[in-house]
Every structure is written in C-alpha cells, then in structure tokens.
Design a protein around this nucleic acid. Sequence first.
DNA 1: CGGGCAGGTGACAAACAGGTTATAAGCGCG
DNA 2: CGCGCTTATAACCTGTTTGTCACCTGCCCG
Lengths: 223, 223
Amino acid sequence: MKVLVADDDADLRDLIAFTLTQSGYLVLKAGDGPSAVRGFEEESPDLVVLDINMPGLSGFQVCEAIRKRSRIPVMMLTVRGEEEDLVRALGLGADDYLTKPFSPRTLLARIKALLRRAGMANATPLTAGRVALDLQEHTVSIGRADPVRLTKLELRLLQMLLANAGHTVSSDRLLVQVWGHRSGGDRQLLKQLVHRLRQKIEADPAAPALLRTAAAGYKLLVE
Amino acid sequence: MKVLVADDDADLRDLIAFTLTQSGYLVLKAGDGPSAVRGFEEESPDLVVLDINMPGLSGFQVCEAIRKRSRIPVMMLTVRGEEEDLVRALGLGADDYLTKPFSPRTLLARIKALLRRAGMANATPLTAGRVALDLQEHTVSIGRADPVRLTKLELRLLQMLLANAGHTVSSDRLLVQVWGHRSGGDRQLLKQLVHRLRQKIEADPAAPALLRTAAAGYKLLVE
DNA sequence: CGGGCAGGTGACAAACAGGTTATAAGCGCG
DNA sequence: CGCGCTTATAACCTGTTTGTCACCTGCCCG
C-alpha cells in the first residue's frame, strides 16, 4: 500500500514516513508541490498526505491536479485556526484533514479509516523485510523480483505471517484465520498450502529461507 | 478534448504531451511544420500549441495556415527576449504565448484559460491513457478511433475502472458501484457486462488489451 | 530396533471462477 | 400493441484453485 507524503518540513515528513513505514505502508516522500505531483503521476500511490504550505505548488493546487485524474483518498494537513483552508481543501475534493500538531497515532487511525472507506484495505497493508504484499493485486514481491501472483488462500496465509513477521504463528491460529476453521483438525490443508506458497516465493523450496517451519507452526523470516 | 503540440524538441514535446495527457486531454504530436499542418487538417484539434522554431515551416507559417481555415485557439512558444516574435505571432492571430522555459502548470493554466475563453471549457471528458469517456454523449473513444456508444451500465463500469485506471477494482466493489447491490453474489452480471464492454472497446475481445482480468477483479490498463 | 508422529511431497479429483453463447425478461417508444 | 435495445438468467466449457489421499522422510522415545 503506497502512500505519498508531501510536506516541506523535512522533520515532520520524516516523522510521518517513519510512523507509516512501521505500520507496513510503503512511503514516498515529496518536499514541494511539483515533486508531489510528479510522485503522484509516476508512482500512483493509494493515498496522498498533503501539507497546504509548500513551495512550487500549494497543497490546494496539488490536490486539484490529483483530482483531475483520480479519486484516491487525499488527506490535507493544515495549521490550526485556518478555517477557510479547510473549507477550500474539502471543496477541492480532499477527503479528510488534520490540524497540526497531531499525534502519529491519530494520523494512522485516520489514514486507515480513509483506506477502509475507499474499499482498499481489507485489513492492515503489509511489508516487512524484503517481502511486500499487495492486497489489491493479490501479489507479493520478494526484494526486487517481479511480483508473484497469489491465490486467495496463499494471500491470507502470507498476510497472517507477515503481520507477525519474525514470530512463530501456531498452526491452529493459521487454520482459524485462513479458513475460519472451528478448531484444529485439518493440518493437511495447511501443509499443502505452505508447500504451494513455498513453491512460489522460495528460491529453493526444499530449503526455505523465508517461510520457515517452527515449533507448532510457521514463521516468516525477516532480516 | 484534442490538443496538437508542435515542437521540434522531442523532450519538451513529450513533457507537454505528458502534462496535458495527465490532465485529461487527448494529445497529438508533431515534430516539424509540415506535420503540424497535416495534423491540424486531419485531426481537427481543439487547440494548438506551436513552437516558433521548427524545421520545414516555422510556427508563424503554420499559424498562418491554420488561421486561413479556423479560429481555434493557438498558443505560441517563444524563446525569452525575442520581443518582435511575440508581436508577429499575435499579429498572425495567435491567442496567447509562453516564453521558454515555463512550468508545466503554467502551460496548463494558460491552456485552460484559452479553452474557457473559446467556450469549450466544460467539455473536458474523463480520460486515462487512450481511453476518453464522454458522460454527456454516453460514448467512449479509444485513441483516435470513432467514439463508441455505451449503455448505462457499460458507462458506469468503465467510469469506475477509469477512475481507478491502472489499479485493480475488486468485483465486489464493481457490483456495489454499478448495480448498487447490497451483498456480493451476482458475479454473472459482471461477467456479462465485461464481456459486452470488451466486444465494444477491444480490438481483439478474446485478448483484452485494455480491460484486463486481474486477481479478484478487473483493471483498466493504461500505458 | 521399531512404532508413532509431524512435516514434506506428488498425484488426483472436486469445486470454483471466468469466458462464451444462447435465450428470456424488462423497458422505452411509436 | 409490437419493435428494438438493454439487462438478466441459464447452461456449457475451460483452466485454476482447493481439498483429499497415499506415501515418504527424519525424529523422538520406549
């Protein structure tokens, strides 16, 4: 899930980027209006966070440019008290706004809400280590390699493992999360699914480097 | 909305074309005077952007040729400081000029102003890549081909895909947006609608180049 | 040493999703 | 009322995905 963050304040930009990256988003940064527009055009992010005061083009203008081509969620950042800025931003098609200063937690919550509203995130989007999951496209990219198509179940399994990257997830939990199975029982399904997933994402499926077998379950190795 | 861009500098031409395309215009390119005139005659664009220095025929001569037959807006591009060029261009019937270098957004703003003045402003159709949707006429144009008439549902489907051009839109979302269906369920309708739409807009409906099947949905491919 | 167990593998069948074609139902309109 | 166009329903075909089974290996432990 790509998010473009445009703000001329490098510190704030980095803070936001850090917050989002930790939560599994792929973050692109822009420090002024024109590079924000360029970033949007070249990367087609899934959401844009726009500061209003930016050199080159204001957040308003960038928002306008984006709306000409796309309805992706746009979140504007405004300074407290500038009421007409808000009105104008929302009038231009922005989806939400935050007044500075705000807590990273708030930002995260709002962003998730926006993505949910846009029907994108069925759950938290995820990347960890060299593994990047694209829920929309049903693909996974390992490092720089071409994305690999995943089936519904493979996607769900990988999503679960990714959400707990580095930690073991028990087979029981996986069964429940992937199949909605009542209680244990059908380990064979999981065995098979892991096998199929390894065929797709492991360089050497016989010696798994990513999807490792662990005590009573599996884990995704991230460096 | 067709715009003819004539400039011998391929980079600048592409930059302008890119800017305009992203803003929803259908752009035609010409690299020299004669092909500019030919482009004008064959495609009857709604606006022409003309560089003055071009091989074959200068921008002046092209402008003159155009003015013999049409009053469509012409914007000239000049090098800074050549004042008499401006005078001459405006004398020949050009409507506006820009001195190089200029920012894409300046160009865009001026072009919009020209079209507005010419009374063509409100017709900007939804476009992405080679696909241009006309909501008033219920038609779609692929590249330079003749517009194709669409039914209500076909139009809505294409509009949804266009609004998310390049990204997969899940079948569920499409069902909701196109039919207003409460719950998923009726994939058959979508199957059919996609099939009929492909018959209309794809050169080879059996091997779709635009409306592609993607994981759990469909997507409109744009270059 | 040998049985039991967990995980890995290959083969195969059932279930499913998407494409295609045909046909019926609905609807606007003269 | 019937005509033509649009939309819905159904049946069939295909390739993919998923579930099931049989068998293998390595390992723990009596």
